[in-house]
Simulated assay, not measured.
Amino acid sequence: MNDAFRRRTATLLMAAGLSTVLLTAPAAADANPYERGPAPTEASITAGTGPFEVASVSVPGASGLGFGGGTIYHPKATGQGTFAPIVVTPGFIGPQFSIAWYGPRLASQGFVVMTISTNAPMDVPPDRAKQMLAALDYLTQKSAVKDRVDASRPGLMGHSMGGGGTIRAAAERPEIKAAIPLAPWDPDASLARPVKANTLIIGADMDFIAPVSMFSEPMYAELQSAPEKAYLELNNAGHVISYIAPNTTIAKYSIAWMKRFLDNDTRYDQFLCPPPKPSSAIKEYRDTCSLG
């Protein structure tokens, strides 16, 4: 083998190596910067506690705050960057403790979650929408954990009138990435306003306060501008199913929805598409299911 042949061979090998690097570089560049926590399983997404240890911060109600105070739950971990924020709001005459379980449950999966009190227990959906946005602004701009939050990826959740407020707030602020109205009640919730957040509506088949035929189903049908939407109807469940005590079905699909659309984490597609089938917990599930 002469020197010229050796030089040509070395040149070809170097070129092949460079091509390999160039071809594999985009894959590394395409890694999701928002992915938090280990790959999910059925066991991990239905567990009472996720992979992150959680701390909490109390926010007293104060004049000029814009909402009635609340509690912030956040992962203690400091080595995984910032986390998406979620504000959770109770329903009509509902105290903060009625939705308190969402805070640690969601935060332990890798979110900064604020459960709030409303200014007055009888505040109607338009007022609750304003308070949710005020709470979100406080969480991302003024709170003790604002540096732990990625303000570009906000999410909202609310029960009953808080669910109606969730839809209104998402319509008012197009930057909201994901919304989950729970048994939403609002006779005029966004029926003529575009909601651009990926929205999961959760209703209950035995809800006589906010019957799904009058509220959840029409609201779902009107979500024409949502990039992705889904409707989950709980089986043998009433209006207060999401209050006080944790509900595994609500938690599972809320976590999957927020992970997918706040963290852009496609590892959670498996729980959303293909859609879940009717079961003892789920009466019906509809969605656009265009993930991929």
Rank of each mutant, 00 (worst) to 15 (best):
M122H: 07
R168C: 00
G162L: 03
R36A: 10
T46N: 11
T266L: 05
R168G: 08
D263A: 12
D127C: 08
A179C: 03
S190R: 02
V240L: 13
K196T: 13
A192H: 15
L23G: 09
M132Y: 04
S213F: 04
A151D: 14
P278E: 09
A221L: 11
M132C: 04
V112I: 14
P174F: 03
K177L: 15
P274V: 12
G50H: 04
Y220R: 09
T9E: 07
I209T: 08
A179T: 02
G155D: 06
G203W: 01
T82L: 06
P274W: 07
K259T: 10
P121H: 01
T140V: 10
A15D: 05
I202S: 05
G163P: 11
E42K: 12
L191I: 12
A251V: 00
T288R: 10
L191K: 05
V21W: 06
G17C: 08
W257T: 05
I45H: 03
Y34I: 03
N235C: 02
A135Q: 06
G163T: 01
N119M: 12
M1E: 11
Y73K: 10
L65S: 11
A221N: 14
P187E: 12
L136I: 05
H74P: 08
R36C: 07
P174V: 11
I241L: 05
M206S: 00
F5C: 12
G164W: 10
G70S: 11
I176P: 08
F111A: 04
R128G: 04
P275Q: 11
F92A: 05
D265Y: 06
P51M: 00
V113D: 04
D205E: 14
G17P: 00
L22D: 05
H74M: 04
E53C: 06
T20P: 00
K76M: 14
P181F: 02
D137Y: 14
V59C: 12
R105M: 14
R173S: 10
I202A: 10
D207W: 06
A43F: 04
W101Y: 09
R173V: 09
P85S: 01
M157T: 03
P218D: 08
I250K: 00
S242A: 08
T248M: 14
F5T: 12
Q141L: 06
K142S: 11
N264S: 09
I209S: 00
T78E: 13
R193A: 15
H74T: 08
F5P: 01
N2I: 03
A281F: 10
A134D: 15
Q109R: 08
Q270W: 10
Y138C: 08
A15L: 12
I45T: 10
T46G: 04
W257K: 03
S98C: 00
A27M: 11
Y253Q: 11
L234I: 13
A134S: 13
T248L: 09
T288L: 15
R267G: 06
K196C: 07
A189G: 14
S44V: 13
I116W: 01
D186C: 01
L12G: 02
C273F: 06
